[in-house]
Design a binder for these strands. Structure first.
Lengths: 338, 338
DNA sequence: GTGAAAGCGCTAACAA
DNA sequence: TTGTTAGCGCTTTCAC
C-alpha cells in the first residue's frame, strides 16, 4: 500500500481530516480523548505526514537552506556544524548546498531553495560582485542572511567578523616579533572578506612600518594548491620575507608544505600566519598562528536574524561584525637572527 | 506582488494553465509560436515555478538527500563533493544533512527527507545496529543507497570498499617494512566498516606473523581527539609498537600530534598508517601512508544505483565493493634500528 | 495543439 | 470541540 494520508487516519479514528490535522499538529482545540485516538491511529498506520502538501498549504516548510562556496574548506564545515546546532534548538532542518565557487551554480542552488519555499536562506556568497544578480532575485518574503562574505548592492542582513581589525591583530603581532617586511597571500576573488583583508593588511603594514613591495601581494584562491604555488614562487626569489600573511589557513598549509619539502626552517627562516583557525591549524608542523573566527557566535546570530519577524514595511537590514581573536602558535616564534 | 504563478503566465500569454505547463516543462506537444509566447510572458513576470506544488502533483522533486555522520570529517566532504558532481550531470540537486553520529538525529533527518519526498536518499549510517529501525521505516518507493557503511538487517543497495583487502594492503606493507608487532586504533561504533577493518586487521596480522597483544586494540571514535587520547596512552607504556594502524586518517592525525609534542621521532621510532587519504594526509609531518578510498567511483556508482529503475517486484539489492589503494608516504619509512 | 477539469495531501476559514 | 468546504500551484487525463 501507498504511504498513508491524513484521510486514512481520519477514517480509522472516525473523525474528520481537519481534526486529525489539528490533533497531530497541536494547533487548535482538540479534546484529549480525540487526540489520543488520532495519535493511536496514526502510529498504527505509520503515518508520517507529507511535508510537501503541508508546505504548499501553509507556506512554510521548516527548512532552512544554506549555501557555501566550498564544503571542503574546513572553515565552512565548522560554520555549518554550528548553524545546524542552532537550528536544532528552533526545530528547523538544514539543507546544505555547495556552490563550488561558481556564480552560476550558486544561482541555481538559490533558485532551488526558493522554489522549495524554504523558510530562510543562509549564504556565503562566492563572488562580491557577480553574486548580486542571483541574490536580488530572491523575493523579499524569504529571509536571507549573508554570512562571512557580503555582496555589495544587496539588501540583506549580514554576519561576519571585522576583517580590518583582524589584520591589525596579525600585523601588530608580526611587528612585535620583528617583522620588517611582509608578503600577503590571499584570494583574488572580489568578495568582501578578501578585499577587506587586503585593505586592512596594506593599512596596518604602513602603520607598523612593515615594508610591502609591489610583488608582495599574491592573490589567487582560498585553497591549499594556491598556497603551494605561491610557496614555489617565493622559494625562487633571492630572499624570503620576514612574515607571510595568509588570507586563509588552507593557503598557509600549502605554503608550509612547499617550504617543508624544500627544507626551509619554519619559523626560523620565515614566519607565517593563517586566517580562520580551522582544526588542522593546531596539528600542522609548525602549528599555525592564525585569526580565529567565532563560528558559534556567527551561527547563532545568523539563525537569530533569520527568525526575526519582519517587523515593519521599512525593513532595515543589520550588519553584525564580531571581534576576531589572534591565536598565537609556533609559526610566528621569533626569527633566528641572520 | 506575490510570486507569479502559472495562472498569471497563462493570463498574460492568453492560453490555458495546462498549455503553460506543457510549454515550460517541455512535455507534450505545443506549437513553437505558443511556446515562444509563453516563455516570453514567463520571463517578463519573473516566473520561477513552485517546486512544492510540482512535487505534490508529480510525485518527484528533483532532489536527492544525503546524510553523513560528520560533515567535519574530510573523507565525507570529499564524498559529498563527488556526489554533487555526479548529480549535476543528471540535473538533480543535493540536499545534505549531518547526523552528528547520533542515531536519533539520523532518524529525524531521514524522516525529513521522506516527508519532503526526495527522489532518493544516500546515507552513510552512523550505527551498524541501531540505524536499522530508521532505515527500515523508509518506504520501498524511495530508493536508498548506503555508502561506506552498511547496516545489517536492511534491504538497500550498498557501495563501499573492500575493507578486508585494505587491511591486507596495510599489513603486507608494514611487514615488509619490518613490523613485528602492531597496535590498531579505530572506532568502537559497531558499524560495518569499523568491524570489517578490525576483522581484517586481526586476520592479516596473524597471516603475516605480526604480534597483537590484548591491549593493542584501541577502539574509540573516528576523530582527532580520540587519536590524541590513544597517543597519550601509548606514550605511557614502557615500549612503543613497531606500527600503529589507524581506522581513519583523523585518528592518525591525533596520534601524530601527541607524539610530536612528546618529541617522538616519526617514523624513526614508530610507523603509523591512516585510512581514507584525506587531503591533509599529504600535508602533515610526517606525510601519512594511508588507504585511499576512490570517492569519485563510489559517488558515481551510488548515483547510478539511485536512478536505476526498480525493474521488478523481485527487487534484489546490489552490494558493490571497490578495490582500495595503498598510498605510501613518509610515515612508514623504515624504523631506525634499535 | 489546446482547454477544461480533476485532483495531489494538507490546513485554515467558517459553520455548527 | 468538531465537521464542511475551499483552495495552495501545479500536472495530467480526457475531450475537442
Amino acid at each position: 500500500m501507498q504511504q498513508p494520508t491524513i484521510a486514512d487516519v481520519a477514517k480509522i479514528s472516525g473523525v474528520s481530516t481537519a481534526t486529525v490535522s489539528r490533533a497531530l499538529s497541536g494547533t487548535g482545540r482538540v479534546s484529549d480523548k480525540t487526540r489520543k485516538r488520532v495519535q493511536k491511529a496514526a502510529s498504527e498506520l505509520g503515518y508520517t505526514g507529507n511535508s510537501i502538501a503541508r508546505a504548499l498549504r501553509s507556506k512554510h516548510s521548516g527548512i532552512v537552506g544554506m549555501i557555501v562556496p566550498s564544503i571542503s574548506n574546513p572553515f565552512f564545515t565548522a560554520l555549518v556544524e554550528s548553524v545546524e546546532h542552532e537550528l536544532l534548538r528552533v526545530g528547523k532542518t538544514l539543507f546544505l548546498c555547495d556552490s563550488q565557487g561558481d556564480v552560476a551554480l550558486e544561482a541555481r542552488r538559490l533558485q532551488s531553495f526558493q522554489e522549495s519555499h524554504v523558510d530562510g536562506i543562509l549564504v556565503s556568497p562566492c563572488h562580491g560582485i557577480d553574486s548580486v544578480t542571483a541574490l536580488n532575485l530572491i523575493p523579499k518574503s524569504t529571509p536571507v542572511v549573508q554570512l562571512d562574505q557580503f555582496v555589495v548592492g544587496t539588501a540583506t542582513d549580514w554576519v561576519g567578523i571585522d576583517d580590518e581589525q583582524a589584520m591589525d591583530l596579525v600585523l601588530t603581532h608580526a611587528a612585535e616579533r620583528g617583522a620588517k617586511n611582509a608578503v600577503f597571500v590571499s584570494s583574488a576573488s572580489t568578495n568582501s572578506s578578501a578585499q577587506a583583508r587586503l585593505a586592512g593588511f596594506l593599512k596596518f603594514a604602513e602603520v607598523y612600518d612593515i615594508r610591502v613591495g609591489p610583488d608582495d601581494i599574491r592573490l589567487g584562491r582560498f585553497s591549499v594548491d594556491w598556497g603551494e604555488e605561491v610557496g614555489a614562487l617565493l622559494l625562487a626569489q633571492p630572499a624570503l620575507p620576514d612574515v607571510i600573511v595568509c588570507g586563509a589557513d588552507v593557503i598557509a598549509f600549502g605554503i608550509i608544505r612547499a617550504f617543508t619539502a624544500a627544507g626551509i626552517s619554519l619559523p626560523g627562516q620565515v614566519m607565517i600566519t593563517g586566517f580562520d583557525d580551522v582544526a588542522f591549524a593546531s596539528i600542522i608542523t609548525p602549528s599555525l598562528t592564525t585569526v580565529r573566527q567565532p563560528t558559534r557566535l556567527l551561527a547563532a546570530e545568523a539563525v537569530r536574524m533569520l527568525s526575526r519577524r519582519p517587523s515593519e514595511e521599512t525593513i532595515t537590514h543589520a550588519k553584525v561584525a564580531f571581534t576576531p581573536e589572534l591565536i598565537i602558535r609556533e609559526s610566528t616564534a621569533r626569527l633566528t637572527p641572520r
